[in-house]
Design a protein around this nucleic acid. Sequence first.
DNA 1: CGTCGGACATGATACGTATAACTTCCGGCG
DNA 2: CGCCGGAAGTTATACGTATCATGTCCGACG
Lengths: 352, 352
Amino acid sequence: MSSNDATRPAADDAVRAPGAARVTSRDVARAAGVSQAAVSLVLGDKWRGRVSAAKADSVRAAARDLGYRPNLAARSLRTGRTRTALLVVPALTTEFFARVHTGATRTAADAGFGVVLYPSPEGIGPAPDPFGSARTSLDGVIASSMAVDALAALHGAGLPLVMLDNDPADDRAAATVNLDIAGGARQVAAHLLALGHRRIGHLAADVDSWTFAVRGRALADAFAAAPGTALRRVPTALSVAAGLTAAHTALTGPEPRPTALVCDDDVVAAGACKAVRRLGLRVPEDVSVTGFDDLALAVAVEPELTTVRLPAEGFGAAGMRALLDALDGHRPTARTLPVDLVTRGSTGPAPT
Amino acid sequence: MSSNDATRPAADDAVRAPGAARVTSRDVARAAGVSQAAVSLVLGDKWRGRVSAAKADSVRAAARDLGYRPNLAARSLRTGRTRTALLVVPALTTEFFARVHTGATRTAADAGFGVVLYPSPEGIGPAPDPFGSARTSLDGVIASSMAVDALAALHGAGLPLVMLDNDPADDRAAATVNLDIAGGARQVAAHLLALGHRRIGHLAADVDSWTFAVRGRALADAFAAAPGTALRRVPTALSVAAGLTAAHTALTGPEPRPTALVCDDDVVAAGACKAVRRLGLRVPEDVSVTGFDDLALAVAVEPELTTVRLPAEGFGAAGMRALLDALDGHRPTARTLPVDLVTRGSTGPAPT
DNA sequence: CGTCGGACATGATACGTATAACTTCCGGCG
DNA sequence: CGCCGGAAGTTATACGTATCATGTCCGACG
């Protein structure tokens, strides 16, 4: 067969060029002088005691030489598995979820899996059903608890479901991966308390999701445990403009004015800083501000934001790992990833 | 067989529940009293003159009642098409490309297409070959010119390729969609010239990509056309920290100092603003700063950035549309989307 | 020496779909 | 009346893979 290769290599190439090189396992079998079944066994790494080492080698060599790529559709049809996962994230698709996706994709690639991203829509009516036809082309789903509307559709889809930042007690999930949001909130509280702050405003995300509920509760508990502190909650959407408005509300409300604003998101914190300055005050001398997420934005604004750094890539990676484990039949797990307070210029001692 | 159904309907359901309702076209055919071929014809909308209207209706009804979802793997195997596109974006996966992806996904969904995102890696060595197995599961590729390393791998993949922000003369592409980057650069130049600026620093992205080359050239041309202006180019990476350093370089270089800094990216502009202030100068009274992209960050910093708004979602949508057209056999096209200068607080009259 | 089991290898099959090829029916035209 | 052609269906097949069921060969064990 090697002599055959030598006789007309150019012709081979010419024939294959237009058809874009559709090499099948049968082609490999022919080239290696074995049956198609043997090729499948060897490349599937199930050949011990079924194919001789010599033939296995020649199969691998032939596959490499021909540039063989298994047809994924055929494989899926045969096995019923697609090696594809769906990642459902909220419509507010920003840096954080882009990083989550990156982490998930890397981990997936190592296992030969692909990731399809589904940004749950905002204004365009109900979701165009990612679980319609897609159901037949997915092995599992990873969903952020913030994608609330999509979660309803997920229920009963019959697919393994990994939940990100959701109540670990939720029994719909094959696994749960959480960030230690409560711990982050406690770190923020401790930091501000240590700086002497006693009147705090909480610019709380106006989103119905477990992760923000936890955040609010942990914050309330932490401040309640410190004597003589007052915590006021002001709901806000997750945007700079909304943060500005909410901060204005918090700072111009009933006296005495809060000396620190805790924000559920860096974007909100950026808006809050602007509000502080528009009132003729300074950050952090008059009002301290904290964020959440540690986005690129956190070091772009001035002063740079004290914020809670979330391991976004690791979050996505852990989610994918949990899904892969679930697909391997592992028992449901609940993992929590640690987060870190990053102290920067937007917080300082409380004014006396 | 209908009597059989009637005798034990509960058993049928019970059997199907664990297997997660695998309804095939044959099941639909049985329920509608037609052949599997008829089902395929009706649902594929190719039944005119092949199936009576009455039967077509009953097929559709049966499909709906049974919750039939075509098996995508089988369909792909049969047709050789996967209705899936790959979107290749640079590793610096940020807000801009998240929005491009959103636009592409929406357009794709309307055509029954899916989108797989491939963030071309940075540190982790050569790309894990998205065109390996994936080649058999993709119909086409949309690639940003910024994903330079991936473009090499793309060449010769034999897949229709739509290029985003790439040289329209590149004949590898089945279509090209560009943002009017040059026009945006000219608008920035005109704006600054009108404000009286004559000494300009250009914080230029240190990235080898067509789009940034165009930007630099358009800027150079525009200022060269105005008498008595000086443009100095300082390369920078695309981060806040790098922008800060580059701006420092530009502002502390040979006298006289530039009165305006044009940045290739909002992130860089944010860093530049910080550098200005660290030198004891003000934005925009002493130095005007402009960005590019109009990210969320642009209105988070203070002062808010004068920048060029890019229609990110529309960019992704246009790319997908171009790919769909190419797959329909249309001739190669080159489209350019307009961009807008957004004037905010970071630019002002040149100091006298 | 018979046979049993393990190593090696192959043929056949089914996954679910789209479509080419084939049958049947019937109305209309020469 | 014979025949043609289009509508309305069906049957059969192939896409490429993974795996089950066979089959052969040989060394070893009883």
